[in-house]
Amino acid sequence: MLSRLSAGVLKNAASSGAKKTALGARSSVRYASSNASASTVDAILSSRATLASASLLSVGTIAWYTHLYGTIPFVGEVHASHLSDEGLHPPSYPWSHKGILDTFDHASIRRGYQVYREVCAACHSLNRIAWRNLVGVSHTSDEARVMAEEHEYTDGPNGEGEMFQRPGKLADYMPNPYPNEEAARAGNAGALPPDLSLIVKARHGGADYIFSLLTGYIDPPAGVEIREGMNYNPFFPGGAISMARVLFDGIVEYDDGTPATTSQMAKDVVTFLNWAAEPEHDERKKLGIKAVIIFSTLTALSLYVKRFKWGPIKNRKIIYKPPTDH
């Protein structure tokens, strides 16, 4: 059906185009007298003098423009840039949650939380995650409650109008390592450790980038100067990063006996941060499966029903029966 239809449309379009060209050809009939003038124009156009003067004109225009504005026209700025300014592109890692049907590895989230708490949380906040968010994801309700109670929160005002300290509750959000941004900068030589809640979404390359950054600390190559207090990391744009390498083999001890190598810890903490950025991830993919199945089925069915409804109309044959004399 479709092929026939499009063929007809094409034919119509082609014939209307042909008509136009035919009309055009008719209106621009050339007579013998015009032939001579055309050849004169051709001769002028193809002469050496024309070529030379046109070249001179364009070179002169460009030169004048360059003289006026200091740059060559129509050519973008040319910079002596270096690839390291962009940072090394991270390789694509086979995350356990990479496929469209794959959930997070929740055991990895649990280990990653441990790495965050013992290593990252010294400098980085996790503002948007509350203790209750861990419940049913990586920790039981009781574990989360105990962890929350280890931290003091300021609450109030109480009956006397005073603020008071109380142990954390499930509804509280993860505590900040620094009271404010200035304190954070002062504690880190002027660099602000970013909040990690949405860091996986906030960086190009996402999880791959953060994994590469955490495991990518190397000595600066020959010729690269790194300031005192900075560290070299080829994946960081510019190469010089204030954060030092923090993950070393065995720096944490996992509950479940997983060997805590640098790459294992990096993988776990990135999985945890990816969960923190996308807590809805597992539900989202499940809903995606459902939506794809439902809507593709509905599409197929509606095509069938459309054919069913249009069949008699398309098949209809209109016959004229003239009145007969008898």
Binding site: I294, L298, L301, R307, W310, K314
Partner: peptide, 30 residues
């Protein structure tokens, strides 16, 4: 050539109702 559109309404009657009914079921569920 309308053969692609030609349906035998008698023999496909139950199937057609089933298809339309299925569309109703899934649409209602969605």
């Amino acid at each position: 050539d309308f053969s692609a559109y030609r349906t035998n309404t008698d023999s496909n009657r139950a199937l057609s109702y089933f298809m339309i009914g299925s569309m109703g079921v899934i649409s209602a569920s969605a």
